[in-house]
């Protein structure tokens, strides 16, 4: 059953009661909240996700709850909690959706160690995975939003989830936080994209989430093997360059970019070695999305 098949009242009852148990790629997530604003936003933004079955294990239990502050008695603050712990300071209630999404990403990054986690946008085309590893602020969310609306299947704008033993990558299509000028860029380029509310004043400025396409969410249990690794860099005014990258450099960049390379030790060493040896490695410098998309289409056509 999909979230979108629940009425708002049913949805509300789950969130304020036992929790909304929803499938997110290879994980199940339980969310609890009583915040009316967040409940309405989630009903729209999570509509394509499936509910977890009753007998399935839920990996992450999170809550977004009101936080009363003695210092700021009039402020309407909320707190994100995972298993009773709060990794972030309280934020205004208007930032609840952004805080929930960042909180879930943080929990995945901190707790998942049976998979190798790259800090990477990940998409699939022609049956194979294109990995776009990059640091925060490099535009990978915007680029993956462009790609997913141009025929690529979204795996994630944030994580490359790799099984170290098999090399399979797993989809984790979650809401994607566009920031600041990227919001207008996507509204202009992709008028068909479903965006959540603009949330000003976050630590990263104004944020608006883009909902992954239904097809990407519905195929979230279809893993794929990697074939291309492209390190993207947006540089204002730069001419397009898609150049071959030495494999040793790709190894170094991937190992330092992964969240849990050191935790996984030799398994990660073997996995990254196999990954790099089996993929075409490139670096991409671009300022114009259209030309970048053409270059990536050509790369992934074969």
């Amino acid at each position: 059953m999909k979230v979108g098949q629940l009425s708002l009242d049913e949805f509300h009852a789950l969130l304020i009661g036992q929790g909304l148990r929803v499938k997110m790629g290879p994980f199940n997530l339980s969310v609890q909240t009583r915040l009316p604003l967040l409940i309405r936003q989630l009903h729209q933004m999570y509509s394509h996700y499936s509910l977890a079955e009753e007998d399935e294990i839920v990996e992450f239990h999170v809550r977004v709850i009101p936080k009363h502050s003695i210092r700021q008695p009039l402020a309407r603050l909320i707190r994100f909690e995972v298993d009773g712990r709060s990794p972030f300071p309280p934020v205004p209630v208007e930032q609840a959706l952004a805080t929930l999404e960042w909180g879930v990403n943080l929990v995945i990054a901190m707790r998942i160690n049976h998979l190798l986690l790259f800090h990477s946008a990940t998409v699939e085309r022609n049956g194979h995975v294109l990995l776009l590893p990059a640091w925060p602020g490099s535009g990978k969310t915007t680029l993956s939003a462009m790609l997913m609306h141009r025929g690529y299947r979204l795996f994630s704008d944030e994580f490359g989830l790799m099984a170290p033993e098999t090399g399979d990558f797993f989809p984790l299509p979650r809401l994607m936080p566009l920031k600041n000028q990227s919001i207008e860029i996507i509204r202009h380029y992709l008028p068909e994209a479903v965006l959540g509310p603009e949330i000003p004043g976050t630590l990263k400025g104004t944020v608006a989430h883009i909902r992954p396409p239904q097809a990407s969410i519905e195929r979230a249990d279809e893993a794929a093997q990697p074939r291309w690794i492209v390190f993207p860099k947006w540089v204002a005014g730069a001419a397009l360059r898609l150049e071959s990258l030495p494999q040793s450099e790709a190894f170094l960049l991937l190992a330092t970019n992964a969240f849990n390379y050191e935790v996984l030790g030799e398994a990660a060493f073997d996995a990254v070695t196999r990954l790099v040896r089996g993929c075409e490695c490139r670096k991409l410098v671009y300022s114009d999305f259209d030309s970048a998309l053409v270059a990536l289409d050509e790369l992934t056509d074969g």
Partner: peptide, 22 residues
Amino acid sequence: LRIESWESEFTVFQPESEKTHF
């Protein structure tokens, strides 16, 4: 040591420390 050759560069995994050296 686990040594992988990348043309003129090498990645070396050291099992004792679980560190990778370039």
